[in-house]
Amino acid sequence: MVYITSWDEFVERSIQLFRADPQSSRYVMKYRHCDGKLVLKVTDNRECLKFKTDQAQDARKMEKLNNIFFTLMTRGPDVDISEVSGKEQSEVQPTKKGRGRKQ
C-alpha cells in the first residue's frame, strides 16, 4: 500500500471515495503514541487511501477532516461540506497567518 504524500490530494480523493459509496466506506485514524505516528485511512474495501504523518500540524488538519467526515456521515454524502471546511478554515486561519503562507 502506497501512502499518499499530499494532504490535499488525500482529502480530495477520500471525500470522493466516500461519496461514491457511502454505505461501505469508512474512515480510520490510527495513532501510535510510542512512535509518534498518525495514520489516516479511508477505504471502501476496494480502494484504500492512506496518509501517514508524524507532524503535529497535520493533526490539526486531521481535525478538519474529522469534522468533514462527521458532517458527511450524519448529514448524508450529498451535503455541502464547504461550510464545514470554511468554518474550519477560519479556525485554522491564525496558524496560517503565523506561518505567513496562504493556501
Partner: peptide, 9 residues
C-alpha cells in the same frame, strides 16, 4: 500499542 478510531456511516 495503538488506538484506532473509525468513523462510518
Amino acid at each position: 500499542g495503538s488506538v484506532w478510531v473509525t468513523l462510518k456511516r
